[in-house]
């Protein structure tokens, strides 16, 4: 973080001569930005970890090693493990459809993709209760066949998938729009079929966008509270995901336990940001390396040897 602020300060200094902000204004802006970040981002994060470790490592591990918590971790991983791949498949399909074809109702589809974002997660959960609950549309049909969706794992997976649906699709639609269709058309004229084009051209082309979408989707899938809370039924050891477990522990005044579990989710968020940063860094680094190579036109052999090393 100090790196970001360092660059910002540096660019502010560079602009000095043109814009002419006084030192006072600059300091004021920096203090405001830092203060805001501190209060709303850093302080809560620190609190989570501080509270989690407030009684030392022992109680922290004990809180995490509880059966119910372990079950919650397992369920959360299972949920993310199902809904993220589903959303990757749907996301690629939707992005492919939207960016490669023109059809009637395309703008409607793009709007519908965003629906889960514009609806409150609680409503998203309720939708599934209304559809599959005991008194829902499909409720009687399901209960006749003894299939449980609401207050069971399938409901949690469905609600999570619904809520996280736009993350992969939106990311891919943006990236694929920006990159155009030229390479796909070229592959088509060279004899490649649809699947070949998808696997050899499109996916490699959008891989960073896809990775980013998957990372965000995964983070949201593991952290989703509202929609899951509605469909879960809070059955301990069975239908509690990590965020729900945090709430339960907190309501039972088990603060160390609550914050220990919360610290897991927070770590996940930090890890997500780290992976994203690495992905971005690797893209820009590769680009820089290529630019450097291009300027070194004089040594084509050395260049190709180096290239072998950085090939993806």
């Amino acid at each position: 973080m100090s790196g970001i602020i360092g660059t910002r300060a540096a660019s502010a200094r560079r602009r000095d001569s043109q814009v002419g902000e006084s030192v006072f204004v600059r300091m004021l802006l920096i203090v405001m930005a830092l203060g805001f970040l501190g209060i709303f981002l850093v302080a809560p994060l620190v609190t989570v970890f501080a509270s989690a470790f407030s009684q030392g490592l022992g109680p922290y591990w004990a809180a995490l090693a509880q059966d119910e918590t372990l079950d919650a971790i397992e369920l959360t991983l299972l949920t993310a493990g199902i809904s993220v791949p589903l959303n990757v498949v749907f996301g690629i399909a939707a992005a492919w459809l939207v960016t490669k074809y023109d059809f009637w109702g395309k703008s409607v589809l793009i709007t519908v993709v965003d629906l889960p974002f514009s609806v409150s997660p609680v409503i998203s959960g309720l939708i599934f209760v209304l559809l599959f609950g005991a008194h829902g549309w499909f409720g009687p049909w399901l209960s006749e066949r003894d299939i449980k969706i609401i207050f069971a794992v399938p409901g949690i997976v469905m609600a999570t998938t619904f809520v996280t649906f736009p993350l992969v699709a939106r990311e891919l639609i943006a990236v694929m729009h920006a990159q155009g269709n030229d390479e796909e058309e070229a592959a088509l004229t060279l004899g490649a079929g649809g699947l070949s084009i998808l696997l050899r051209i499109t996916l490699p082309k959008v891989r960073w966008g896809l990775l980013y979408g998957v990372i965000l989707c995964n983070a949201r899938a593991m952290g989703e509270f509202g929609a899951v809370s509605v469909v879960s039924g809070h059955v301990r050891g069975l239908t509690n995901t990590l965020p729900l477990q945090v709430e339960i522990l907190y309501n039972e005044y088990n603060f160390v336990g609550a914050f220990a579990v919360a610290s897991l989710l927070a770590s996940l968020a930090l890890l997500t940001l780290l992976v994203k940063k690495i992905a971005e860094w690797s893209v820009s680094n590769r680009q820089a390396k290529r630019d450097a190579l291009r300027s070194a036109e004089a040594r084509p052999l050395a260049a190709s040897a180096e290239l072998e090393g950085v090939r993806p």
Binding site: D182, E183, E185, A186, A187, L188, T189, L190, G191, A192, G193, R200, I201, P204, K205, L307, R311, P312
Partner: peptide, 28 residues
């Protein structure tokens, strides 16, 4: 177009950016 066996060169070249020159040529 997959089965027409025509060579098409695009104004934007449309080279596969993630492949080497040799892989580009070998694609078809």
């Amino acid at each position: 177009p997959q089965h027409r066996n025509v060579g098409f060169v695009f104004q934007s070249y449309a080279l596969f950016k993630h492949m080497t020159v040799a892989d580009n040529i070998a694609f078809g």
